[in-house]
Structures are given as structure tokens and as C-alpha cells.
Design a protein around this nucleic acid. Structure first.
Lengths: 178, 178
DNA sequence: TTGCGGAGTTAGTTATCAGTCACTAACCTT
DNA sequence: AAGGTTAGTGACTGATAACTAACTCCGCAA
């Protein structure tokens, strides 16, 4: 397997591991084990642990964006909101992806606190692409884009906290276009 | 200082430390140092690290709830939404409190994954109280409660990611009653 | 056949962490 | 003053972490 291919495999495994354990809570050894390579070899593929996390982060964000783009293909404008909402629910059936989003949020804040400006810049650049994509697909009304994204973030929270779907906190969460 | 008093001090310090570092990223030694007690003494005050985190978690949630209750006191019904929104913005000017909320979310998910059901139950119980408080104060319309809470969660995200207040992602975030 | 670059490993270093143990100092009560 | 309790500490440990150095293996081209 070429180094480039191997890097992609490692990034995919790392996303899953970091999603479950967070940055500090995930050892490079556990990533290596699941990727079926030796732990030191990770440091030949990536310069350090931070670089592995960054690769996993970008994978998470680009995968989310791609999902939205695909979900809107060939859908009439008045049904796009519902299509994106449905696509998001399907996407986060994979809790790794959901939790990675939240891990990215706390890791970005922590990076900023440590004086690591670069990390936040990269994340915000990828998030801008995601935002613009959704904004365009939903018709360009900031209020609607915001409603969609904030609903998504609330869903993330309720899921992370382990609220069962029938709980009353879900009442009022709009998943489809109004 | 009595043990009970000391416990409260430690919990306050721990909330700040866990907010910045997360559960795994925070050492008990750093908490002890800032609380100005020896590290072993933490384990006399609390049974283990998890118990310290739990105390910090509850402090975060109850402080948030108390803020909302106080903010709504004596405010006419049609201005409560704005009052709560303003109170929340003031509250999260303390980024420790904001980040602790997010750390609680990921920690709760991780606890559940580890088979620790108790942690999630306690967090959801405290969250339910917060939810009910806000729901009642805002008039009992689930759609409005959801809008308020989801806006708050979106604000948390943009702040954590380091978006400056003038960034376009903030367009459409409604902070005051419409 | 030989040599070379890239994929990959084994063995090791240094540091840090949660938690324990044995202890002391101050204070209260009788 | 004796006896007991409560607040608090210094020294330690077994485990685990990120990361490094030095090596092997293998396909391929001259």
C-alpha cells in the first residue's frame, strides 16, 4: 500500500477513535492497532499526533459537506431543506461522525488557548465551505441557514447527552421545512 | 476550612480546569495546585477523578439555571426572551462556563460508551431542570424553547471555533425575541 | 547481481498521570 | 493533660503516553 493510501486509512480510523475518546483520551497506539500498522509508523506518515487529528478533522468536515451536496442533487428548491435534514439524520446515525464534530469544537478552542492559531484557521476554512454550501443550497436566506445549522447542533447535543428520541426535549425540534 | 467548604472550592477550580483541558486533558495535580491543596488530598475530598468532574459538571449546570431564573425576575412576559438571551451572553463571557458545557457533552457520551450509565442520568436530570426552567420562563411553547436553546448551542459552537463576532456565520443568529 | 528507495518493524527513552501509604499538625472534648 | 478527630502533606508506584533510533524486508532498475 502506498504511503498516501495508508494515510487515508489512518485518517479514517483516527476519526473514529478521536470521536470516541477525544484528543487527549485517544492514544496513538489504539489508532495504530485499528489501522493495523505499528505505532511508530504513524509518526512516519504524520509528523505528530496533532497532524493525525487534523487529518481526521478535515475528513469529518468534508464528508459532511459532500453528503449535503449529494442529497440536494436534482431536488426541487422547496424540498431541499427536508432533503438536507434527512441526509443529516442519516449521516449522524454514524455516531463517530457526530461526536467528531463535537470533539473538533473543543479541540479547536483548546488549540487556540495553547497559542496554536493555525489549527483554528484550518477548521474555520473548512467550516466556511460547509456553511457556504448549505447556505447556497437552502436558497441564501441567512435566517433559514441559521435555523438549519442550529437545529443540527441541538440534535448533536441531545444525542451526546443520551436523550432517547421520545424524550420531551425533542419536542419543537424542526427537522423538516416549515 | 471545613471539608464541605473545601469541596466547593475544589469544584469551582475544577470546572475552570476541565473546561480548558477536558476530562483526560486535565491532571488532578493542576486542579490541586490552583485550589492550593495537595494532590493526594483531592482523593480524600472526592472518591476519584470522575467524582471531581461530576461536581464541576453540576456546578456548571446549576449556575446556568440560576442565572436564567434571576434574569427573568420581575420582567414582563413579552420581554423574557430578550432578558434570557442577554443573560446568556453575559454568562458565556466567562468562557470557562461555555466550554464546560461542551466538555460535559462529550464526557457524557464517553461515559455512556464506557458503560457508565449513572453519569448520563445525573447530567440529564440536571439538564431537565434547566430545560423546564427555561421552558416555563419563556411561556411554555416548545417551538420557542427549542429556538432559544438551539440558538444558544449554535453560539457555543461559533465561539468555540473562534469565529470573530463580525463573521458572516453570525448573520441570522437571533438573540432577541422576534 | 547488486544497490537503492520506500514500506514497515522492534526495541527503547523520557515524561506524566491517577491513586496509595504513612505520616504530621492543629483542634476539640472531657 | 489525655484521647480522639479532622485537615492536610511528601514520597512513592505501576501503568501508559508520545516520540525516536536503528533496523529489516522487498520490488525494481542498471
Amino acid at each position: 500500500m502506498s504511503a498516501e493510501e495508508r494515510r487515508r486509512c489512518v485518517a479514517a480510523v483516527a476519526m473514529s477513535e478521536f470521536a470516541r475518546g477525544g484528543y487527549e483520551g485517544t492514544s496513538t497506539e489504539s489508532i495504530a492497532r485499528r489501522a493495523e500498522v505499528s505505532q511508530p509508523y504513524l509518526f512516519r506518515l504524520f509528523s505528530n499526533k496533532r497532524a493525525i487529528f487534523l487529518a481526521a478533522t478535515r475528513l469529518c468536515l468534508t464528508r459532511t459537506r459532500d453528503t449535503f451536496v449529494e442529497a440536494a442533487e436534482g431536488v426541487p428548491p422547496n424540498q431541499v431543506y427536508g432533503a438536507l435534514a434527512g441526509a443529516y439524520l442519516e449521516l449522524i446515525a454514524d455516531t463517530d461522525l457526530l461526536m467528531m464534530q463535537m470533539q473538533v469544537q473543543v479541540a479547536t478552542f483548546q488549540a487556540q488557548q495553547r497559542g496554536d492559531e493555525e489549527f483554528g484557521q484550518i477548521v474555520r476554512r473548512d467550516w466556511n465551505e460547509l456553511y457556504d454550501t448549505v447556505h447556497l443550497l437552502l436558497g441564501g436566506d441567512p435566517a433559514i441557514t441559521t435555523e438549519f445549522l442550529s437545529s443540527g447542533m441541538m440534535i448533536n447535543t441531545w444525542v451526546a447527552l443520551g436523550y432517547p428520541p421520545e424524550d420531551r426535549v425533542w419536542t419543537g425540534v424542526r427537522l423538516s421545512s416549515g
